[in-house]
C-alpha cells in the first residue's frame, strides 16, 4: 500500500528535517505557550512601566502599592503650567506622606528634566530578580528571543548563538538579585502588617488581604528560587550530616517544583495589588473594610 513519495521542499536536511526559523513537523499546539508567555510578559511590562511613570495614586490610607515599596523619597506636589502660562504647584494625589518615606522628600539635586517617581528607585531590584530567574530565562529565551521558540522547532539567528557565555554572563549573578528579593519580602510583609492598622486602629480591609496575599505569593516565588535552593542545601553532598540544610532544601524543592506557578501568580498579583491600591485611591472601587 505504499503510495508515491512526497518530494522534499528546499532547506530540508537528510532525515527530512526542515532547517529554518520556526520550521517544524510538529502537529501539536506548540505555539500557544510561547505566545501566551510573550503577551503575558509584555502586558506586565507595559502596565508596570505606566504605573511607575504615573507617580501618583500609589498609596491609599494604609495601603501601599508594592511597585512603590519601600518609598525611599516622596514627592508631595509637582509644578504644572496652565494654558495661560502660569506656573502652579499642585498636590500629588495618592502620594506617600513624608513620614512614610525613608529619606523624606525628593532631593533638590534631582534634575528638573528627569521625571521622578518613587517607583524608579526600587523597581530595578525585583526586575533584576525576575530577569535573571531561571524560570523567566526559559520563558523569554523562548518567547522573545526564539532560541528555541519551541522544542524541535527551528530557532532564530542560529549563527549568533552564544548561550550564557558572553553577553549573558551576568545571569550568573542571580543570587545577588535573590538577596535583595529576600529583603523586599520582609518589607512587603511589613507593608501587609501595616495594612491591618489605620490611624492606629486594627481592622481588616480588602486591601489588607490583597497586600498579605501579595507578600505571600512573592515569598513562595522567592523561596522556590533555584539559587536559594542551592544555597540552603543543594551545594551539599552529605545531607545526612546537615539535617537542617536538608530540611530547608526539601522545602525549597517543594516550592521549586511550583516555581513557574508562583512566578506567574506573584507577577499577576503584584500588578493586581498595584491596580487595587490605585483604583481605591482614585475612587474607582470602594474601600471595603471594618474601619467603615
Amino acid at each position: 500500500m505504499s503510495t508515491e513519495a512526497n518530494r522534499l521542499p528546499t532547506a530540508t536536511l537528510p532525515g527530512g528535517h526542515l532547517d529554518c526559523t520556526g520550521c517544524t513537523h510538529r502537529t501539536d499546539d506548540w505555539k500557544t505557550g510561547p505566545t501566551a508567555t510573550f503577551l503575558g510578559l509584555l502586558l506586565f511590562i507595559v502596565y508596570s512601566t505606566a504605573a511607575a511613570f504615573q507617580g501618583e495614586h500609589y498609596m491609599y490610607e494604609n495601603y501601599l502599592s508594592p511597585m512603590y515599596s519601600p518609598v525611599v523619597f516622596t514627592q508631595l506636589e509637582r509644578t504644572v503650567t496652565t494654558p495661560e502660562g502660569e506656573t502652579l504647584k499642585v498636590a500629588i494625589p495618592g502620594a506617600a506622606p513624608v513620614e512614610h518615606a525613608w529619606f523624606g522628600l525628593k532631593p533638590d539635586a534631582w534634575p528638573e528634566w528627569l521625571p521622578f517617581s518613587p517607583a524608579f528607585l526600587i523597581l530595578a531590584f525585583p526586575g533584576a530578580f525576575r530577569f535573571t530567574c531561571y524560570y523567566y530565562r526559559k520563558a523569554y529565551y523562548r518567547s522573545f528571543w526564539a532560541n528555541p521558540i519551541g522544542c524541535a522547532v527551528g530557532p532564530f539567528r542560529r549563527g549568533l548563538y552564544r548561550g550564557e557565555t558572553h553577553l549573558l554572563l551576568f545571569q550568573n549573578l542571580h543570587r545577588y538579585a535573590l538577596y535583595f528579593a529576600i529583603v523586599f519580602i520582609g518589607i512587603l510583609y511589613y507593608d501587609a502588617y501595616m495594612g491591618f492598622f489605620r490611624h492606629g486602629e486594627f481592622g481588616v480591609g480588602l486591601g489588607s488581604i490583597v497586600l498579605l496575599l501579595n507578600a505571600t505569593f512573592l515569598a513562595c516565588y522567592t523561596f522556590g528560587c533555584h539559587s536559594f535552593r542551592h544555597l540552603v542545601g543543594g551545594r551539599l553532598n552529605w545531607f545526612s550530616k546537615s539535617p537542617l540544610a536538608h530540611a530547608l532544601w526539601k522545602r525549597a524543592s517543594f516550592l521549586n517544583e511550583r516555581h513557574m506557578f508562583f512566578a506567574w501568580l506573584s507577577l499577576f498579583w503584584v500588578g493586581f495589588t498595584d491596580f487595587f491600591v490605585r483604583a481605591t485611591s482614585m475612587g474607582w472601587i470602594p474601600d471595603i473594610s471594618t474601619w467603615g
Binding site: Y141, N147, G163, E164, T165
Partner: peptide, 9 residues
C-alpha cells in the same frame, strides 16, 4: 555549561 540556556526541552 554556559552554552545551555536552560530552556528545558
Amino acid at each position: 555549561s554556559g552554552w545551555c540556556n536552560i530552556t528545558r526541552c
